[in-house]
Simulated scan of single mutants.
Amino acid sequence: MIKKFEAALAGLLYTLRTQVNMAIHLGAAVAVFLLGYYFQLEGWEWGVLILTVTLVLAAETFNTALELAVNLSCPHYHPLAQKAKDVAAGAVLVTALGAVIAGILIFLPKFLRAF
Results as ranks from 00 to 15, higher is better:
K3N: 06
L108C: 02
I24T: 11
W46R: 08
W44M: 13
L49F: 08
G90Q: 02
M22V: 11
I50V: 15
V53Q: 09
F33E: 10
L16S: 05
E60K: 05
W46E: 10
V53M: 08
A29S: 15
G36H: 08
N63M: 10
L9M: 06
I106P: 03
F111N: 01
L26R: 01
Q82F: 11
I106T: 01
N71K: 15
V100T: 08
I24S: 06
A28R: 12
L49T: 04
P75Y: 11
A7P: 00
A7V: 03
A96S: 08
I24H: 08
T54N: 06
A69G: 06
G11Y: 00
G90Y: 06
L13P: 00
Q82N: 12
T52Y: 05
V48R: 07
L34V: 14
I24P: 03
I101P: 00
P109V: 01
T15Q: 04
A99F: 06
Q82A: 15
R113L: 15
L97D: 00
L49N: 07
A59I: 03
L72E: 15
L26C: 12
Q82M: 10
G11C: 00
T15L: 05
F62N: 07
K83D: 10
F107S: 01
A31W: 12
V100L: 13
F39Y: 15
P109Q: 01
K83L: 15
T15P: 00
A69M: 14
A89E: 12
L80V: 15
V56A: 09
R113W: 09
L41S: 09
F107G: 04
S73I: 14
A84C: 09
T95V: 07
V53E: 08
A58K: 05
I2H: 04
L34C: 13
T52D: 07
T18G: 04
L108P: 04
A91M: 12
V100N: 01
A28P: 02
K85L: 05
R113F: 12
G27S: 10
A65Y: 11
C74V: 15
A81D: 02
E60G: 13
I50T: 12
L9H: 01
Y77H: 15
L12G: 05
L66I: 15
H25Q: 11
V87E: 04
H78P: 06
G103L: 03
I50N: 04
V48N: 04
L16K: 05
A99P: 00
V56G: 03
Q40W: 08
V20R: 09
I50M: 11
G27R: 04
M1N: 02
V56L: 04
A96E: 05
G11T: 00
I24Y: 11
Y38T: 12
N63L: 02
M22D: 03
A88T: 04
L72D: 14
L13K: 09
K110E: 01
R17P: 02
G98E: 02
L13N: 09
F111V: 06
F107W: 04
T52I: 07
F5V: 05
I2S: 07
G43M: 13
T95H: 03
V87Y: 09
T64Y: 14
K110P: 02
L55C: 07
A10P: 00
Q19V: 14
L93N: 06
A7R: 03
Q19C: 12
L66K: 08
A88Y: 03
N71W: 10
I104D: 01
E67F: 11
L51M: 10
Q19A: 09
A81G: 14
A114W: 11
V53R: 00
L72T: 14
F111Y: 12
A88F: 08
R17N: 14
